[in-house]
Write a protein that binds this DNA or RNA. Structure first.
Length: 268
DNA sequence: ATGCCTTGCTTAGCAAGA
């Protein structure tokens, strides 16, 4: 008889909900059907006073939130204990709520440091917003570098607003050098990987034209004109334990959907 | 295509997203 206790697998997901106020029923429904251990959200578009802690607690999730009025906002929802929450990037003054980090106590699986980011969009290469994007990416790189030193078991995930390469866009020719496709953004993505992080989605064979975001306009989803810009990067120490990574397109078919779909990674 | 949706803010069109 095998008496060795089986280590339960751990599921961590990311989802840009484009307003938690509008999408809360969908988040609750999705969690009921996909009871992941940790769900990281972006684009809450609400202040912390309006964060729906009670509704999430009712289905077993505690949350650490970092919101602001109208724009941005990030949160970590977890069924496992969270501690050592950090907001934004220390040393980088930023009016915008874009990063929340916390340590998840995964019990038999040990502790995992989570960095959840809503990366800057950048609007257009050469614009002020693009400059802000590149500066923000530089400071995020420094933060991840430091956090990896303190926490070798680390996951960096969220809405990166970067297509890592031409496989990650529906139109690599027509969209060449446009926002999310520039050499500079892709170099920043690669320099994050160079810290010892791995794109979990690419650790496995995947269907061609796999995307995580589709424009609301022009029947983007129906025509699968999308981008893969939502990512889960795992550190060297975690890479061997990753057994699956997938994009769940189902919520993009809900009535009044977010324009992003959740991405889920399985560890162990 | 300076367009197409969606959301928030405020209540009539903007700003911003990607």
């Amino acid at each position: 008889m095998n008496t060795t206790p089986t280590t339960p697998s751990l599921h961590i997901a990311t989802w840009n909900v484009n307003s938690l106020n509008v999408r809360l029923p969908q988040v609750l429904q999705w969690l009921a059907e996909n009871p992941v251990d940790v769900l990281c959200l972006q684009e809450l578009k609400l202040v912390d006073e309006k964060f729906p802690h009670a509704e999430l607690a009712a289905i077993g999730y505690a949350a650490q939130a970092f919101g602001q009025k109208t724009y941005n906002g990030v949160a970590i929802l977890s069924r496992l204990p969270l501690h050592d929450t950090m907001r934004n990037i220390p040393g980088f003054a930023d009016e915008q709520a874009r990063v929340i980090s916390a340590t998840v106590d995964a019990r038999t699986q040990g502790e995992i440091r989570i960095i959840n980011g809503y990366f800057v969009n950048g609007q257009e290469p050469g614009s002020d917003k693009f400059q802000y994007k590149m500066q923000w990416l530089e400071h995020l790189h420094a933060l991840v570098h430091e956090q990896l030193r303190l926490h070798p078991r680390l996951v960096l995930l969220g809405d990166f607003n970067i297509t890592p390469d031409d496989r990650d866009t529906w139109d690599p020719v027509g969209l060449k050098d446009t926002i999310h496709h520039t050499v500079e953004e892709r170099a920043a993505f690669q320099s994050l990987q160079a810290l010892g992080l791995h794109d979990a989605f690419r650790l496995f064979p995947q269907a061609e034209k796999s995307f995580s975001w589709w424009d609301y306009r022009m029947l983007g989803f129906q025509k699968n004109r999308g981008l893969r810009i939502d990512h889960i990067l795992v550190s060297n120490a975690l890479q061997a334990s990753v057994t699956q990574c997938s994009i769940d397109r189902a919520p993009r078919k809900y009535p009044k959907p977010s324009d992003h779909a959740p991405v889920i990674v399985t560890l162990g």
